[in-house]
Design a protein around this nucleic acid. Structure first.
Lengths: 218, 218
DNA sequence: GCGATGTTTCACCGCCGTGTGAAATGTCGC
DNA sequence: GCGACATTTCACACGGCGGTGAAACATCGC
């Protein structure tokens, strides 16, 4: 548990509306005196002074005294990059929903077989146990695999590989993949996760136990 | 003054030690249940629940219910990028001093002429007033420029351009640049800014007035 | 020198956010 | 169904942080 206390500390420096306004005002790279920054942030000179002191102490700003003026500026490009990244986050709502719901990432139907994290994990687990052999775009059950199918009561069919949309790794498809998904649904190891999203699948309690046994056992 | 209140809001979401620990624990991309995140952050389950709720509401995390467990994960790559940028900031101290002091950025001697922001501003200002014509790596005084030199009492010399180290833009160099700097120092419009840094220059009060007049007037 | 201006320091107050304990909700194993 | 477990909700008290006013400090123009 090696903490990185600095992360929260840096964030807390930006987490104030007045300091945010100052940093945004300085984002162009120009140096501005304390008074202008106070006006930009809409706070009194005293408040601004303390805010600026904190930002300098935290290494976000550099200060440069010139006569009775004190010019503040962004310390370096990394500070600007962090501010930009947070700005990107803050103005993100439109894209926020573009990402597929987490349910679809975890487990879903891909045409007629199991995809998502669970589908990839199943393919990996069966391969790790030597039940399936994967080579390039091809896959087939080994002898052990055929015995396992029989023990599970899953009809033996040819399997293929399908590149996963969210995981970018292959999962089991083809007639064999269809048979496995049918088996999982039939034995109520999987169920529909959401009425509004018919492709999303969720594990049942029995299903979790089955996957734990199937994937974890050496 | 178009605020971007979201920036401070996003930062405040990260600005808590417990939430920082949670985000760091999730930074690998894996999804973890609330209990594990509570343990990772070293807080009680109630506190963790509220922290996680805030992170989800703020769009930093996505939650996915599976039975009595609730799995949380980083919402998307942009969140990860922002966290990484802040982490970069937090672990930056060694490099912090690598950047040239602000004094050197503002005004300094470059061999024998004026460089830094002030040098670039002077070159731009003279060009904008039609006193200097810049073309590629070449520069020369115009007729108006020669009159201005005479009025200032600066001897007329050929000028060259020098690419600025910090500004990445050209400033005036060569014999003319040297004469200008000598004039500015001689009339006490500029002075040494720091004993420890002989190249750093600072404006005197008179110098500020002179630059304001020289640069701002149409 | 003097007043004016830009900036900082100090002490005080109010508020928001967090931790905590008790209790409610939803889900699993039996 | 019942107890166990993971998680959430609620109400409350504490602490820290920011805003404000008064005053000190530094510098410029004259």
């Amino acid at each position: 548990m090696s903490h990185q206390p600095g992360l929260a500390r840096m964030a807390s420096l930006i987490a104030d509306p007045a300091r945010e306004a100052m940093l945004v005002a300085l984002a162009g790279g120009r140096a501005l005196p304390a008074g202008e920054l106070a006006a930009a942030a809409g706070v009194s000179a005293q408040s601004a002074s303390r805010h600026l002191h904190k930002l300098v102490e935290g290494g976000l700003l550099q200060v440069w005294s010139q006569g009775r003026f004190r010019y503040y500026r962004i310390a370096d490009e990394r500070v600007a990059a962090a501010i930009e990244a947070l700005c990107d986050l803050a103005t993100r709502p439109p894209r926020q929903r573009k990402r597929p719901p987490a349910q679809l990432c975890f487990a879903r139907c891909c045409y007629d077989h199991l995809a998502g994290e669970l589908g990839v994990a199943l393919a990996d687990g069966l391969a790790a146990r030597g039940l399936v052999r994967m080579a390039g775009q091809e896959a087939r059950f080994t002898g052990k695999g055929r015995a396992w199918l029989a023990a599970q009561g899953i009809p033996r069919e040819d399997i293929a590989l399908c590149m996963d949309w969210t995981e970018r790794r292959p999962h089991l498809a083809g007639p064999g993949g269809r048979a496995i998904l049918a088996h999982l649904l039939d034995r109520k190891l999987l169920r529909g996760a959401d009425k509004a999203e018919p492709r999303a699948l969720a594990l049942t309690p029995k299903g979790r136990a089955w996957f734990a046994k199937t994937l974890n056992r050496k």
